[in-house]
Design a protein around this nucleic acid. Structure first.
Lengths: 211, 211
DNA sequence: AGCATAACTGGAGTATTCTCCGGATACAAC
DNA sequence: GTTGTATCCGGAGAATACTCCAGTTATGCT
């Protein structure tokens, strides 16, 4: 009995190709960890992985996608913390609380991966959006917003709330403007306060954490 | 009687250098208009301007700054429409109305210059922020926000309201997601509605323009 | 006018991303 | 096992952003 391929699905990846992919990602991650994200060229990655540079491009298409593959490797845990994990990030808490918790968690992730993210978001202008994780965050945010404000344009607002966490702006605020991380989170709170019925009259930090 | 240079100011630009700068910007603008922004290499610009490529880099530092120079050339009018122009964009209208008008005008500008802006915002990650116009928009927005919500973090919120109008996101929404321009503006209205006391309870378009 | 010097010029050179395609190879069918 | 073929491999090559520096020129001072 032979298993049939899903109609229209992509052809399965050959075993050697899959192994090469893993080797490339691992080599890239190690080089980045050792020399910093900017100092690592595609040729070096290819050599360290023991493959030709053509293979790297065949697997990943461009530099941005390779870097995203490294990032995804690091944050698989975060990716389902807000889907399956415990409240307030995961299901169980009110949507407004989940929204806030999600943005804070995303700020923490951006802080942790900032250099890698900046590198990934350079390159093609749509690099950030075509990556699977952006779509995931967008869907999640749109779902929460849809519950909080049924009449609003959740798809637009999801993009608009993700935009201030673009790595280039985030890093500019943190490094050049010198804003502490807590101030960024408090600013995000102020931004969403207006979108949450019942909170829009106060400028106080609802959690009492201060900045 | 000799005129003294302002202490600490940059040395004045030599006459031939100023002429070369104008020739470079003009050549770049013409090449971009003819072949599209992506098809223009720095070497071509240099040749068309009749200078060496080293001169282009001496004047502008990198590709992003050259493109911003071309953009600035095109929108000098817009730059003071919201500073000296008539209401609701310029002074005279309530701050909340000016805020809304400004974001709409900025959306129109982003629409008009989208390809150029995308090109300019590629390159160094902080390309967008170090350009003079970003600082101008940021100051203006922070000033308006400071009047509307004295207690809020105007500097952060100004960045956050500029973020959804980053060219790469804007173009992705317009072209890939297929959002009409009016929907972007309506979404921005929804975003700021929460920041403006008294408007935060309605999802209606306050202007009645629809989308 | 002549001179000293700081600024400018331009093109060869470097580094890097990404493309292309002839040859090798894994996998399926028999 | 053998064979056919779709997929994959890898390095040479093209394109291009940016650097460097030896020679030139504008500018201010005397």
């Amino acid at each position: 009995m032979r298993e049939l391929r899903v109609v229209g699905g992509p052809p399965p990846e050959r075993a050697d190709a899959a192994q090469n992919r893993r080797r490339i990602v691992r080599a890239a991650a190690e080089l980045i960890a050792r020399h910093g994200p900017e100092a690592v060229s595609m040729d070096e990655v290819a050599r360290a992985a023991g493959v030709g540079v053509g293979t790297v491009y065949r697997r990943f298409g461009d530099r941005a996608r390779l870097v995203y593959a490294v990032i995804d490797d690091r944050e698989r845990g975060f990716q389902d913390a807000f889907i399956h994990g415990p409240p307030p990030l995961g299901p169980g808490a009110p949507a407004a609380e989940r929204l806030r918790a999600f943005l804070h968690a995303l700020a923490d992730r951006t802080e942790a991966q900032a250099d890698l993210l900046v590198m990934a978001e350079s390159g093609p202008p749509d690099a950030r959006f075509r990556d699977g994780s952006y779509a995931l965050y967008h869907r999640h945010l749109a779902m929460l917003l849809g519950r909080i404000r049924p009449g609003a344009d959740a798809a637009y607002l999801a993009d608009a709330l993700l935009a201030p966490l673009a790595a280039n702006l985030f890093l500019y605020q943190r490094r050049t403007r010198g804003m502490p991380l807590g101030r960024v989170k408090a600013g995000l709170d102020a931004l969403i306060a207006g979108l949450i019925p019942g909170l829009n009259r106060t400028d106080h930090d609802p959690s009492g954490e201060g900045l």
